[in-house]
Amino acid sequence: MALWHKIKQFFSALDKWNKEELTEMHERELMELEHIFALVNFGVVLGLPMPPLHITGELLPYLDDELQLLFNRLENSLDPIGELFSIFSID
C-alpha cells in the first residue's frame, strides 16, 4: 500500500511538472501574441502605422493592459540579457 502510494505521488508530481512545462510554453506564446497585439495598436510610438482612428477610438478604452505590456517590454529591451536569463530561469 505504501509503495502504491509512493508510485501515485511520483506520477502526480510528474504530471504537475509536465503541466507546468506545457503551461510555461503556452504562457510565453501568449505573452508574445499580446505584445504583437499591443505593437499593432500602439506601434505608432515606434514609427509603425497606426490603425484607423475609428478602430483606435473604439479599442483604446479597453487596452490599458496592452499599453502597460508595451511599456514594460520597452523598459526590458534595455536589458536583453536579463530578459534572456529570466526566460531560462537563470538567477
Binding site: L33, I36, P52, H54, I55, L59
Partner: peptide
C-alpha cells in the same frame, strides 16, 4: 474597405490570444 481589413486582421490576432488563454486554463 481598408478599415474592414484592419478589423479582420485584429480579430484574427485576438482569436489566437483567446485560444491560447483557453488552452492554458484547460491545462491548469
Amino acid at each position: 474597405r481598408r478599415n474592414m481589413r484592419w478589423v479582420e486582421a485584429l480579430i484574427n490576432l485576438r482569436k489566437k490570444i483567446i485560444e491560447k488563454k483557453e488552452i492554458i486554463s484547460r491545462i491548469k
